[in-house]
Design a protein around this nucleic acid. Sequence first.
DNA 1: TTGTAAATGTTATAACATAACATTATACCA
DNA 2: TGGTATAATGTTATGTTATAACATTTACAA
Lengths: 208, 208
Amino acid sequence: MTERTPSRRTTATAPPAFPKPGHNHARCAAEALGKAEAVCAARGTRLTEIRRQVLETVWQSHVPVGAYEILAQLNAGGGDRPPSQNSRALTARGGPPSQNSRALTARGGRHAPMAVYRALEFLMDNGLIHRLASLNAYIGCAHLGEDPHAAQFLICRRCGTTAELKSAALNRALDQAVTERGFTIDSQLVEIGGICPNCRPNHRRPKS
Amino acid sequence: MTERTPSRRTTATAPPAFPKPGHNHARCAAEALGKAEAVCAARGTRLTEIRRQVLETVWQSHVPVGAYEILAQLNAGGGDRPPSQNSRALTARGGPPSQNSRALTARGGRHAPMAVYRALEFLMDNGLIHRLASLNAYIGCAHLGEDPHAAQFLICRRCGTTAELKSAALNRALDQAVTERGFTIDSQLVEIGGICPNCRPNHRRPKS
DNA sequence: TTGTAAATGTTATAACATAACATTATACCA
DNA sequence: TGGTATAATGTTATGTTATAACATTTACAA
Ligand SMILES: [Zn+2]
Ligand SMILES: [Zn+2]
Ligand SMILES: [Zn+2]
Ligand SMILES: [Zn+2]
């Protein structure tokens, strides 16, 4: 790999900045929902009410969200949820002891876990969300409308914010290292944990 | 077992071959156990009986194994190893292993899940095994004795055989792609699914 | 010996996910 | 429009993976 010289030319892809704390996230979500509609229309699949609700919940932030947390939000009244704190990626699952999930399945909420998992499956099948195996959680796809793609993720262990990376160089390196061993890739899972630029203000930036 | 003579001597970097079906795996396991002893001795940690049993179970093949499968094998007398030097009466409740895991915790097996998870935690902390997040399963570390390292895994979806890769080039590419975004890596998770050379005999080899 | 830290035992439950079948909604055609 | 096939959702139950909390035993050495 050559040295990265910060050339002024805007040749390559635009700088995919890590999601910043103050950004207009309502716009992220609105755009994502809009594109999701388009994707489903193009594919002839139906973005039903519950699927849309789950997708909205996933897009409430750039922090991955677990299936049962989605369920809780749906059952707590769906749309006008309070800006609840991230419960993942922090050391503890702070907060009051969650309700008994078995009780929820019986009666008490409007939806059972199956409803959420089915919606998540649909959204993944249609390339609208990704699952993060290291967290057992889900996040909206940052490259909607593109073909199903292998993605990499950067997960901040402090704030939980997760960015989707689509590095061609990384994919090349991966492909080469693997092919050398006679292996044929079907799927890849790349999840990088660490500290994001927002959580380490005095980080060394590639000065531009 | 078609004896494929290793015709040419490898010239360049020794290709860390994917584990072959007919290889002398008893040797893999024996070596791993031996090195594990050394590692623990060097670190001043104790490779106790149950930890050794779990490590042996993990090393029974190159296919990752789940915690509850390890538990079942332990409780089935899996490693029929004489309990040497352990005066602790093994609370000998004989009896057939139940299917129900909850029953196991109560009574019926010799160990509860906690015992296995604790052993797994110890083995991971000491760099003796890795956890595969995409499978919720565990595999012996292929680079024992080296410092705690970031590893990548190639997982055959047909035979389950999993190889540990330690590609410097891949790590470089990863590091660059991540650093460009101002991210600092703590941990990495790279799990590649696909077909291994043993399961695709007519693959194109880098014939030299 | 005896105190202490490490290890293990024990019980309970949390957290994540799927199987199986019933019911309702939707689309599409006659 | 009505019928019917399919998709979607509801419902109940259970499977699978992992951890919390506290009791007891063991190893080790002062
Ligand atoms: Zn945003
Ligand atoms: Zn952060
Ligand atoms: Zn082997
Ligand atoms: Zn294979």
